[in-house]
Design a protein around this nucleic acid. Structure first.
Length: 182
DNA sequence: GTTGAGCGTT
């Protein structure tokens, strides 16, 4: 079953058209003003919101753009998917969520990326997503799950391996300048 | 400028 709150917004493959676009795959250094500058070409933009990781203060690499007119959003969506900003190829779609979650009392522990879930918003045990946004007392996930699980033991990407190789190589004794100061 | 895939907590 799908949560009723989300039903009219469609799913990832088939989002319902609206004035709110989600922009994904952003560089962490792309700013709201950059996005605003680019998307405003297609019509008046109410606001741009880059999603910031509360813990690190850095961009999570995606943002939301609110157009005044849905028609402009449509054009912008089509024109901007695949566009490159700061060296990153972006993807643009209608947002399936139309606003940030309502702030809740208690401590927000972050979305548990360690828990696998289907497209319907439920995980394998049939719990709804929003259940995770609270950490009422005992159960649930631990903080380290959010930031570290799934990262540490994954084999590095080719890009990262090359970077590491080059880094180590630059300290190699075979390179004369490693021991010479000018 | 940490990889990569991601739908948000004033």
């Amino acid at each position: 079953p799908m949560s009723s709150r989300r039903r009219h917004l469609g799913d990832r493959e088939n989002p319902t058209p609206s004035r709110c676009l989600g922009v994904f795959g952003l560089s962490l250094y792309t700013t709201e003003q950059q996005i605003n500058h680019i998307f405003s070409k297609y019509g008046p933009v109410d606001k741009v919101q880059v999603v910031i990781d509360a813990k690190t203060g850095r961009s999570r690499g995606f943002c939301f753009v609110y157009f005044e007119n849905q028609e402009d959003a449509k054009v912008a969506k089509n024109e901007c998917t695949g566009m490159e900003i700061d060296g990153r190829r972006i993807r643009v779609d209608y947002s399936i969520t139309q606003r940030a979650h309502t702030p809740t009392p208690g401590i927000y522990m972050g979305k548990p990326t360690s828990v696998s879930r289907g497209d319907n918003g439920y995980d394998r045990r049939g719990r709804d997503r929003d259940d995770y946004y609270y950490r009422g007392g005992g159960g649930g996930y631990r903080e380290r799950d959010y930031y570290h699980r799934g990262y540490r033991h994954r084999s590095p990407s080719p890009h990262y391996r090359r970077r590491r190789y080059e880094r180590e190589r630059s300290y190699s004794p075979r390179k004369s300048h490693a021991y010479t100061h000018h």
